[in-house]
Design a protein around this nucleic acid. Structure first.
Lengths: 147, 147
DNA sequence: CTGTGTGCAAACTCTTTGCATAAGT
DNA sequence: ACTTATGCAAAGAGTTTGCACACAG
């Protein structure tokens, strides 16, 4: 069912979840999972997570961060968030919910509460099935007149 | 108001629209606009448009295609479509509507008709305003059992 | 003629890959 | 021990940029 911060994202729990997902609980994967799931919902890029790992004295290479994020996503522990741009964001909240994208800062965050209701979903075309629905509300900082 | 194929996307019209947008109607820009707007709604990448231009004997460099697509987007003639991945897709339909993204083929197409209704939009956070809303319904080809 | 646009190649960013080394079970 | 993961550096996409030449008004 994924890793939830408030269910105690401690090492034991994390190792269990990784094992269940068919992923060896290596030092790097456990540490990255801790960083990712310790503080509840996060939206982070590979580069961002790597920097954080370096700061936290977790020895891990950028390539491994990419591998790990993709593996976690395949395992359903993370979800990729669609935004325009060349950077991929990963969301620790796997449930159905949607996102604000602040264009000025290139930052992603959850739309709080029941902010968006996607009404009737379209039927998937013949022979296809819906994998997920991403709603991204693009924001810009309001231009305030200087007085 | 943009360029609409069925309003006659001929050279005269295109030159006018470009001029109104503050863009000089150069050979390349007019030709690219023709390719983009000749056949109604399209979703195309820079690389794809460049290949098409080459096929159509329109002499234009890839860098110019990128420039042009970005300029058209700034001018409101195109709209960027949000999908995960490293390729940016541009949509000739600037109106409010949403997209299917076929993951297997990395192809974008419009959701036909009134397939999606985004209900109440969330309030933009303090000091910000909503620029646009992108809904992307990810599809996968249904796995059919071999018998 | 004057200023803007274009083409080319190089630079840049993000991401993936190949292979030797290290670590998990 | 055996297998899988990691790190490094290099390769690979996609995109942007700098500067000389070409073109539109």
């Amino acid at each position: 069912m994924g890793i939830r911060a408030n269910s105690g994202a401690d090492r034991k729990n994390i190792r269990l979840v990784l094992t269940d997902a068919g992923l060896r609980p290596t030092r790097q994967r456990v540490s990255l999972a801790e960083l990712l799931f310790a503080r509840g919902d996060r939206h982070i890029s590979a580069e961002g997570l790597h920097e954080e790992a370096v700061t936290e004295r977790v020895p891990v290479s950028l390539a491994t961060v990419y591998n790990t994020l993709n593996q976690f996503t395949s395992a359903g522990l993370l979800r990729e968030v669609a935004v325009v741009g060349n950077t991929t964001y990963f969301d620790t909240n796997v449930g159905d919910h949607h996102h604000f994208y602040l264009e000025d800062d290139q930052v992603v965050f959850d739309i709080p509460g029941k902010g968006v209701e996607v009404g009737a979903l379209p039927d998937a075309p013949e022979g296809m099935e819906i994998v997920k629905v991403d709603v991204v509300v693009h924001l810009r900082r309001k231009v305030t007149q200087v007085q």
